Amino acid sequence: MNGAARAERVVTSGTFNLDGETFDVDNNVWLVGDDDEVLIVDAAHDSRAVHEAVAGRYVTAIVCTHAHDDHIDAAAELSVLTGAPVLLHPDDFELWSHTHPARKPDGELSDGRVLTVAGIEIQVLHTPGHTWGSCSLYAPFLNAVFTGDTLFHGGPGATGRSYSDRPAIEASIRNRLLTLPGDTVVHTGHGQDTTIAAERPNVPAP
């Protein structure tokens, strides 16, 4: 392992399209690793900007927290640029096909799967609700969890659109995320970081 393992944020801008509506969005793309290799969390909008931030390091995988188009629109091109496989939970394959009809993900995320990069382990937590295949990525070594659009600064991510469910996202957060140590840093898909402890009051009790 060369240099301390860490999480680096790259902010990209583009659009989010679903159910006939389009919104301008800024996305957080996360590079998790060290000076030699990284894992990419969510390939959003601008494959060139993300590839530039990789800066020649080996990319172990492009991991999709979910398949909304603003989180995967650069995945196919970034996979070509880096040679890395794209990983997604199979419950989001249908949603993925709306953005990439001619290209399937290269591998499946599953609850409990452990990914390794730069000598550290990242645990896949299936956290459905924002979409059915939404996953969070817990990195104990970094004391951090990457939640995509499942948990934000201020509480649960959006539901009310296709492929989403409010009770499901709240249950996922309560059962899979709020049980993590309170000082765990939450790296989100949009906006600023938070902590598990800070978000506990923002998630309704069952």
Rank of each mutant, 00 (worst) to 15 (best):
E108V: 04
D106V: 03
I40T: 11
S97T: 12
L125N: 03
A49S: 15
V50H: 00
L78Y: 03
H45G: 01
S97N: 08
K104S: 14
V117I: 10
V80N: 03
W96F: 07
V63Q: 06
A76F: 05
E121Y: 04
A76G: 09
A84C: 05
H71S: 09
E37R: 12
L88I: 02
G107N: 01
D26K: 15
D73I: 06
L87V: 05
S79V: 03
D36W: 00
T116H: 14
D46L: 04
E94D: 11
A76S: 08
G83M: 02
N27F: 06
R48A: 14
A61G: 10
D111G: 09
D106K: 04
P101T: 07
G83V: 00
L81N: 00
D42F: 08
T60P: 00
P105I: 00
D36F: 00
A76E: 08
F23V: 11
V29F: 06
V124W: 04
D73L: 06
L115I: 11
V29K: 04
T82G: 02
A61Y: 07
R48E: 14
H66A: 08
G107P: 03
G56Y: 00
H71I: 01
R113W: 05
G56Q: 01
D73M: 05
K104H: 13
A67Q: 13
T127W: 00
A74L: 07
L95E: 08
D73T: 11
E94K: 12
L95T: 11
D24S: 14
A102H: 02
V124D: 04
V114C: 06
D34G: 06
E94Q: 09
T127R: 00
S47P: 10
Y58H: 10
V54I: 15
K104C: 12
A74S: 10
S47H: 13
K104N: 13
A118W: 01
Q123K: 13
T65E: 00
C64Y: 00
T22W: 11
I72E: 03
I72G: 05
G107E: 05
T65G: 07
T99I: 06
Y58K: 09
T82Y: 04
V54G: 05
N27G: 01
I120Y: 08
S97G: 13
A53H: 06
V59E: 02
P90D: 01
A44C: 15
D26V: 09
Q123D: 10
H68K: 15
L81Q: 05
D69R: 15
H100E: 04
L87R: 04
E94L: 10
S97D: 09
E108T: 10
